[in-house]
């Protein structure tokens, strides 16, 4: 069953129609890249899919159910969102912060479930944060804070991961490792992810589908091999982007050229 489907979806920001009549079908097990220039509505689209913003027109269906009918904890168990801006520095430890990701799963008002501890410990370990468990979050570096946000999202364990620039602040090793972990969640659990990013190279390695926003309401959508082409990218980003294939012909690299 299709995990998420949009019908005739329009996104308006400050009275500008950034996305017009979006028809998107996200199947379980797929990883989507959301690409486009600054201000083309990437974040607004993610927030609309997470029901933080209302859609101007159109509908969103989550496994066949209209998103408008879902809310609260049941919705939070199915859709999770990684925000572009980091965690606010209210005094908390790394562990406490990651544990908040379990909120939609808590059964008891007061008692902690041992399963929650296990999930959170695993999530912290996966993002190399286990040794920082007891640290206060305001002592974390930018990259560590980003990994903590990712760990919190993984603890939430939604079916649809919406990621707003997940590679922000991450070093190269953690970009690759962290996103591979996320991708494993997606393929292993019949989930899906949508990541907004400006790193075309990373996206081409991590994702299998692309939604490329043009900024004037139009968009391109399809498998990576059909969308990540010089012509499309150059048009979308308003500068010439070259694509070079590596020796084995398996990987492609993209860079802007004058």
């Amino acid at each position: 069953m299709t995990l998420l489907q949009t019908r005739n979806l329009d996104i308006l920001v400050a009275r500008r129609r950034l996305i017009h009549q979006l028809e998107l079908k996200i199947e379980p097990g797929t990883s989507w890249a959301l690409l486009g220039r600054n201000g083309t509505g990437k974040t607004s689209l993610l927030h609309t899919l997470a029901k933080l913003l209302p859609a101007a027109t159109g509908e969103i269906y989550l496994e066949g159910e209209n998103l408008a009918t879902l809310s609260g904890k049941p919705l939070a168990r199915r859709i999770g969102l990684l925000f572009q801006q980091g965690l606010p520095a209210m005094p908390k430890t790394v562990f406490e912060t990651a544990m908040l990701g379990r909120y939609p799963h808590h059964q008891s008002l007061w008692k902690d479930d041992p399963e929650d501890f296990e999930v959170v410990e695993n999530a912290l370990r996966e993002f190399d944060l286990a040794h920082l468990s007891a640290r206060s979050i305001d002592t974390l570096s930018g990259g560590e804070a980003q990994r903590l946000s990712l760990a919190q999202l993984v603890a939430q364990a939604p079916a649809l991961y919406l990621l707003d620039e997940p590679s922000n602040h991450l070093d190269l090793a953690h970009q690759l490792k962290g996103l591979r972990r996320l991708k494993a969640k997606v393929t292993g659990h019949r989930a899906a992810l949508v990541m907004a990013s400006h790193d075309i190279n990373l996206v081409s390695q991590m994702c299998d589908h692309v939604l490329l926003l043009m900024g004037d309401g139009t968009y391109l959508t399809g498998p990576v091999s059909e969308i990540l082409l010089e012509d499309h990218l150059s048009e979308a980003f308003g500068c010439r982007i070259r694509r070079v294939e590596s020796g084995e012909g398996k990987e492609a690299f993209f860079f802007p050229s004058a």
Partner: peptide, 24 residues
């Protein structure tokens, strides 16, 4: 307050994050 205490913990993450974690 005790009944809402978990939601209050989540609210310290900020409004939007709390909303996506299922807090009204």
């Amino acid at each position: 307050g005790l009944a809402l205490s978990r939601a209050l913990n989540v609210l310290t993450l900020g409004d939007q994050n709390a909303q996506t974690l299922g807090v009204n």
